Simulated assay, not measured.
Amino acid sequence: MTTYMIGDIHGYYNEFISLLKKINFNHKKDQLWITGDLIARGPDSINVLYYLYSIKESIKLVLGNHDLYLLSLVLGFNDPKNVHDDKILQLLKDAKIIKIIHSWLKYQPLVQFDEKKKILMSHAGIPPQWNNINLILSVSNEVRNIISGKNSEIFFKYISNQISQQNDWKNNTLIGLKRLSFIVNALTKMRYCYPDGTLEMLTKKAPNDISSKKLQPWFWMPNIIYKKYTIFFGHWSDLQGGQYTPKNIIGLDTGCCWGNQLTIFSWENKKFYSEDCKIFKNV
């Protein structure tokens, strides 16, 4: 068995399948970890979800911010009448996609973990305030339980409100919706932090392209977790692969939806594979 990690697919189905063929991926014996953001931006999110659902026993997935947006639409908070993205609307009109969301996608976590391999994955990374693996796994379960439960509509309404966003963990004293808001921001949207660990949610550029000396990428800040585990994440295509990250923190979003590449990493062989992508005009 080979364990593969792949970056944000973003609806690039053809490139995704081509990359799997390039590595001779066999869903009957191999395992595929995915950094989230399965859908949106690219041309064929529907077939991405169809395919992943068909091999669901062979994949370990974390939800990304785009996946959470789709869930918010299907689980009842956002009105599809306000959606102007044709590709998202196609997903909402597809009965099979709705079934996949209700039976599978909404149960996926924000963190995947393998104790034996010492692998940790989330969409955006692991915030510097969390230095305990049990806490990290616990907060992921908190969000999964609320998304798959009766109060998902209240949850999505709260986290979609920019005014109510929570960016400070406050030493694990947060409760209720504020706590859930921080968890979602940290695991699906985070890039930079202030010196005290508070999340800064606006800056997207690479570290060498920002002028603020106060901001640091989350992975440059001290955290014992960053040394104990190999951490895989997506979300931040401006990092240009591994140019800025420490050796055991691996960013896999190499900008397929911006006309760059879709990238996969073989854990056992410690080797990267990529597939060129053409920018989709309706991004």
Rank of each mutant, 00 (worst) to 15 (best):
M5W: 11
M5K: 11
I6T: 12
I6L: 13
G7M: 12
I9H: 07
I9R: 10
F16Q: 15
S18N: 15
L20Y: 14
K22A: 15
F25S: 09
F25Q: 09
H27N: 14
D30S: 07
Q31R: 11
I34L: 12
D37R: 04
D37A: 03
A40Q: 03
D44H: 05
I46Q: 05
Y50K: 07
L52D: 14
K56R: 15
K60G: 06
K60S: 14
D67M: 06
L68S: 01
L70A: 00
D79S: 01
K93M: 01
A95L: 05
I101C: 07
Q108F: 06
V111C: 09
Q112S: 11
E115W: 00
E115H: 10
K117I: 02
L120V: 05
S122T: 09
S122E: 03
G125N: 08
N131C: 08
I136K: 08
N141F: 08
N145R: 08
I147T: 02
S148N: 06
I154T: 13
I154E: 15
I154L: 06
F155Q: 08
K157Q: 13
N171T: 14
T173L: 14
T173E: 15
I175Y: 13
L180C: 06
V184P: 01
N185C: 12
L187S: 05
T188R: 01
K189D: 02
Y192T: 04
P195M: 08
E200N: 08
I210H: 07
I210P: 03
S211N: 06
S212P: 00
Q216C: 10
W220H: 15
M221N: 14
I225E: 11
K228C: 00
T230E: 00
Q240N: 15
G242L: 14
T245Q: 14
I250V: 07
W258G: 03
W258E: 02
W267H: 08
K270Q: 12
K270P: 01
K271Q: 15
F272Y: 15
S274P: 07
S274H: 14
E275A: 14
D276H: 10
N282V: 01
N282W: 00
N282E: 00
V283T: 01
